[in-house]
């Protein structure tokens, strides 16, 4: 019944936790999951039976490692009791992991120019995406956004995959001071972008989708929604999207998303 790409439910193991800035990078063994990973898919981790909701986490990297098979690298920002539990576990902790979940980013068939826009830890899935795009010969520009330097994800690494990297922080602690909206139009124009990929909070996604539309580019956005099950069972993480004929319908961020076409998402009026 399970397709080869379908999610697996496994008991994995936390191999290591490394603190980098405001984030924790967790290296996790979850048998079979890395092999099915495609950029944009995610895992849902249990943080103990007393916390009923699964925590959806972005997959930042898949690394082949001798002995364990491939491992997953997950970026976690401590935001509540579940993530607090997760980042304080010692190496060797068993973790219930479901994944990979959701629909990944679609890759262009031609080697076109792509702009990747991500904020904070949520920029995680853009890095493996950049690798896949580079393999296809796409010219990549990355825009990394954060409130401050501590919340900026892997800017050094971005320079390896991307032809150009723009860093924007709200407090100006590194890169350009300002917000993502200040740089998008110019960046898209300079890159001659055919596709814009975005990951982060709704403001960033909406701004990226709007800028893409102005530039005549496609956009794909990876939404972040709080989830209870992350597996499609509860209908808790719904997002309104415009369907054919201007008809709005609700889709689940976990199963129909998390990656959706930016021009199809009905953004909340107040959010961008």
């Amino acid at each position: 019944m399970t397709e080869e790409r379908g999610p697996l439910h496994v008991t994995g193991e936390l191999l290591a936790t490394k603190r980098i800035g405001a984030h924790h990078h967790l290296t996790v063994v979850a048998r079979g999951v890395p092999e099915r990973f495609r950029p944009g898919t995610f895992v849902a981790v249990s943080t103990g039976a007393e916390r009923l909701a699964r925590r959806p986490l972005w997959i930042h990297r898949v690394r082949p490692t001798g002995g364990y098979g491939a491992t997953l690298e997950l970026v976690v920002e401590e935001r509540g009791p579940g993530t607090r539990w997760l980042v304080s576990q010692p190496a060797g902790t068993r973790l219930d992991v479901i994944g990979p979940l959701g629909r990944p980013f679609s890759l262009p068939k031609e080697p076109v120019a792509c702009v990747l826009v991500g904020e904070g830890y949520a920029a995680g899935p853009l890095f493996p995406l950049a690798e896949r795009l580079r393999e296809r010969g796409c010219a990549i520009t990355m825009v990394l956004v954060a409130p401050d330097e501590a919340h900026l994800l892997s800017a050094l690494e971005a320079r390896r995959s991307a032809r150009a990297v723009t860093v924007v922080t709200a407090d100006g602690s590194v890169g350009q001071r300002g917000s993502v909206a200040d740089v998008l139009d110019e960046t898209l124009e300079r890159a001659g972008a055919a596709v814009v990929y975005a990951a982060g909070p709704d403001e960033v996604l909406h701004a990226a989708a709007a800028a893409a539309e102005r530039a005549g580019a496609w956009s794909q956005v990876a939404l972040e929604r709080p989830m209870a099950c992350a597996t499609g069972l509860c209908h808790g993480c719904t997002v309104p999207v415009a369907g054919e004929g201007g008809h709005t319908r609700l889709v689940r961020s976990c199963t129909e998303g998390p990656v959706l076409r930016g021009d199809r998402v009905v953004w909340d009026g107040g959010e961008a």
């Binding site: 007393e50 009923l52 709080p226 989830m227 209870a228 808790g236």
Partner: peptide, 19 residues
């Protein structure tokens, strides 16, 4: 169409939901 977001929040040993 059901309720607006957030639809489900975690509570002590439970979930509150407004689907």
């Amino acid at each position: 169409a059901g309720g607006h977001q957030p639809r489900i929040v975690e509570t002590p040993s439970g979930l509150a939901h407004a689907v």
